[in-house]
């Protein structure tokens, strides 16, 4: 239960542009704006979404993307409502049976992969 005043403060800072729909287990490209000096460029972080935190109307909403870089697991957590996030692009849908994929952290190689969701039309 959020106080109405707090809600009214948060509302002004919720993002109005959609970052795109994605689910847990999806492989995504997260486009983030990076400032270098006075230049701005887009950096892409791609990996598997292993968790989503808080709902849509909540300013604290965030999601975590995991990937393997040079054999080392790397996780980045992005606040959904941060203006630095340009968009999230799904390039592969995952078939998962739980909401938090923390089990991927204990796995290496092929078992650390999420199966692709097959859509039958």
């Amino acid at each position: 239960m959020i106080n109405a005043l707090i809600d009214s403060v948060q509302k002004e800072h919720l993002r109005d542009t959609d970052i795109g729909e994605f689910n847990i287990g999806d492989s995504v490209n997260v486009h983030t704006r990076i400032k270098e000096g006075d230049k701005e460029r887009i950096q892409i972080f791609s990996g598997t979404v292993i968790r989503r935190k808080a709902g849509h109307g909540d300013i604290n909403a965030a999601f975590t993307v995991r990937r393997i870089v040079d054999g080392q697991g790397v996780e980045r957590t992005f606040p959904v409502h941060s203006p630095r996030i340009e968009k999230v692009e799904v390039f592969r849908e995952g078939k998962v049976r739980r909401a938090k994929l923390y089990y991927l952290r204990d796995r290496v190689g092929k078992s650390a992969k999420v199966k692709e969701k097959v859509r039958i039309k």
Binding site: I6, H13, N60, P79, S82, P83, R84
Partner: peptide, 15 residues
């Protein structure tokens, strides 16, 4: 009233 956070420009600020 309570706490929340806002985005001041690019930066998340606890308020």
């Amino acid at each position: 009233i309570g706490m929340t956070r806002i985005f001041d420009g690019d930066v998340a600020v606890p308020v």
